[in-house]
Write a protein that binds this DNA or RNA. Structure first.
Lengths: 191, 191
DNA sequence: GTCTATATGAAGATAGAC
DNA sequence: GTCTATCTTCATATAGAC
């Protein structure tokens, strides 16, 4: 039982360090050697914890969604109005500016990569979007009950994804600031 | 001389068929075997026309930009007002809906893929954006000379890239229609 | 110029010693 | 459970016959 705990602990360690690796290299360029090195675990050992690379991805997505849920719960608790909560979401690219300009959006780049030929994996990666969209929809419903909250949520996602792609392509931090400000103005205009 | 022409002809044939392949598979999953098969040229022969995969990419980008320039010149000639020209640009994802929902935006997905670790290649791929942005800026300058045309051009690019990413992730054609309409409304509101 | 055969390396994955 | 050695496959790339 103690050993099962240890197994789970190492598994979590692999997931955590590989999460960042996946973000920085993308799925197809991320090798098992990379994973082993990042997690500081002997190469062959990874296969004891994950049978395939696909399983590693699934575990990372699960981990990411858990983190996201914690963050969203925290926002629900600490941020009082739906408008401020939506603004907080829009500010993610701003707070993650260095990463976004260097590696793009972790969700968007992964979905774009997997969406071309690796459909099953993309469907797993997409759950990250689902999680945000569900929460955004709830916020928009509170903000403007008469408008279509689902479409507003998607539109907000479109904006953040678009700015991430272009900011990443040009490593342009000014663009992030300008576009986030623009989103905030749009959100305020809805009330 | 006739043989040099023939060489150039086959080279063009490889570029043209590989252009589509690059779009559908992405750069890193596109192999020389794929290229040879798509171009209907024996596998080893590709190396006679292109020394490396990077060279193939550079040639495809050059080809794409040539095509883009022709298209933009055509729009300049046949579409009379800057507003209509800008709308025409915004409608590209609409006219390419099947492709966009299945493979994403050809420019955006390539930049996102290469931007993580393949900087030099991404700088080449980015020229596609540059070409559009230059043209868009000109149109915005005509449309609203008092506003910052460069920022408006980038904002329009952000919108189209964002809708492409999300539409691709969800294979959602309704989203394309709705977001393109939204962009058109925004463009009209500028005048 | 055209094509086949092959070199070389790295990937994902497995077998089996400890 | 841990780790090494290795299998297999497929990638880029090249050598050299025709």
């Amino acid at each position: 039982m103690a050993s099962r705990e240890k197994t789970e602990q190492i598994r979590q360690q692999i997931i955590k360090s590989t999460d960042d690796l996946l973000y920085r290299k993308g799925f197809n360029l991320m090798s098992f050697s990379d994973i082993a090195e990042a997690a500081n675990v002997p190469r062959g050992n990874i296969y004891y914890y994950f049978k395939t690379k696909d399983e590693v991805l699934a575990a990372i997505i699960e981990y990411r969604i858990e983190q996201m849920q914690n963050m969203l719960n925290d926002w629900d608790k600490t941020i009082k109005t739906p408008l401020e909560r939506l603004k907080r979401f829009a500010q993610v690219p701003l707070k993650e500016m260095d990463n976004v300009t260097q590696y793009g959006c972790p969700m968007g780049t992964l979905n774009a990569e997997l969406g071309k030929t690796q459909y099953e994996l993309q469907h797993i990666a997409r759950i990250q979007y689902d999680t945000f969209l569900k929460w955004l929809k709830k916020q928009f419903n509170e903000l403007t009950p008469d408008k279509n909250a689902g479409n507003l949520a998607l539109h907000l996602l479109v904006q953040t994804q678009g700015l991430s792609v272009v900011a990443h392509s040009y490593a342009d931090k000014t663009l992030v600031r300008r576009e986030v400000k623009n989103i905030e103005n749009w959100l305020e205009s809805l009330v």
